[in-house]
C-alpha cells in the first residue's frame, strides 16, 4: 500500500511543469523515507534529481518500496485537472502497480476528482552522483538568476561563469558582440538583491544557456537558487522546496578544445 497526500498540491504541479521540457518519462521511487526521482535529458547532458521527504506530506504511507514509471506528458494532462488550492493524493494498493491513482480535493472538500494514470516500465538508467564539497557556492534570487540567463542567451548560447571572493561574473561572446554581468556579494535584507558567495576556490566554467533556461522553469518553487560549482565538475543548481525537499539540476560543462 502506498499513499502520499500533499496539502499544497500546487507544489507537485510546479515540479512537473519545471521538468517537463527536460525529461519525457521518469521513475519515481517511493520508500518509507519519501519520494525520489532521477532522470537525464535525451542527450545525457543534464540530470534532474528530486527528493521529497515523507514528513513534508500531510499523510504518507509506503509499506514497501515501489517504482512508479510515469510519462511526464500524461502526468501533466492529469495534473491540469487539479486546482492550485487542491490537496493532491497519490495512491496504489498493488505491489507491482500497473496504474497510479490521483485524488484532487478542494479546500471545502466539496469537489473531489479521481484519476488513474497508467504506469510505464522504464529501465532505470541512474547515475551515481557523489556528494561533492563544492568549492564555489552562490546563493541568489532565483528570479534574478533566471533573468540573467534569459538576457545573456540573446547574445550567445554559451555562458562562462567565473567566481572570485567578492563577485561572480557571467560572460558571453557571440556574433553580435560580447557582454558580462558581474554580481557582487550583497547582504541586503531584500531577497531579490541578496547574494551570498561562499568561494573556497574560484572557478571558471562554461555552460549551455539553453539548459539553464530550462532549469529556471523551477523559479516558482523557491525565491532563492543555489549554484554549486567545482572545477571540472557539472554545475549543480538547487531549488529547495520548503519543508518538503529539493529539486536539483546537474549540467555537464562545455570545454574549449
Amino acid at each position: 500500500m502506498f499513499e502520499a497526500k500533499l496539502q499544497q498540491g500546487v507544489i507537485f504541479k510546479k515540479i512537473v511543469d519545471a521538468i517537463k521540457d527536460l525529461v519525457k518519462s521518469v521513475n519515481i521511487d517511493a520508500s518509507t523515507s519519501g519520494l525520489s526521482m532521477q532522470a537525464m535529458d535525451s542527450a545525457h547532458v543534464a540530470l534532474v534529481s528530486l527528493k521529497l521527504n515523507e514528513n513534508g506530506f500531510k499523510d504518507y504511507r509506503c509499506d514497501r518500496p515501489i517504482t512508479l514509471g510515469l510519462s511526464i506528458e500524461n502526468l501533466s494532462k492529469i495534473l491540469k485537472c487539479a486546482g492550485n488550492d487542491d490537496t493532491i493524493t497519490l495512491q496504489t494498493d498493488e505491489e507491482e502497480p500497473s496504474s497510479l491513482k490521483f485524488f484532487f480535493e478542494n479546500q471545502q472538500a466539496s469537489k473531489i476528482s479521481e484519476f488513474s494514470l497508467n504506469l510505464m516500465s522504464l529501465d532505470s538508467e541512474s547515475l551515481g552522483i557523489p556528494d561533492t564539497d563544492y568549492s564555489s557556492v552562490i546563493q541568489m534570487s532565483s528570479a534574478e538568476f533566471s533573468r540573467i540567463c534569459k538576457e545573456l542567451s540573446s547574445i550567445s548560447e554559451t555562458v562562462e561563469i567565473e567566481t572570485s571572493k567578492e563577485s561572480v561574473k557571467f560572460s558571453v561572446q557571440g556574433d553580435i558582440g560580447a557582454g558580462s554581468i558581474t554580481v557582487k556579494n550583497n547582504q541586503s535584507d531584500k531577497d531579490v538583491d541578496r547574494v551570498d558567495l561562499q568561494i573556497d576556490q574560484p572557478v571558471k566554467l562554461t555552460f549551455a544557456l539553453r539548459y539553464l533556461n530550462m532549469f529556471n522553469k523551477a523559479v516558482s518553487l523557491s525565491s532563492t537558487v543555489s549554484l554549486n560549482m567545482s572545477e571540472e565538475n557539472p554545475l549543480m543548481v538547487e531549488y529547495k522546496i520548503d519543508d518538503l525537499g529539493s529539486l536539483r539540476f546537474y549540467l555537464a560543462p562545455k570545454i574549449s578544445d
Binding site: 557539472p234 560543462p253 578544445d257
Partner: peptide, 14 residues
C-alpha cells in the same frame, strides 16, 4: 570552439 561534455564523463552509471 566549446565542446559539450556529457554527464557520464563525470558520474558513474549504477
Amino acid at each position: 570552439r566549446d565542446i559539450q561534455k556529457d554527464l557520464q564523463s563525470f558520474f558513474q552509471n549504477i
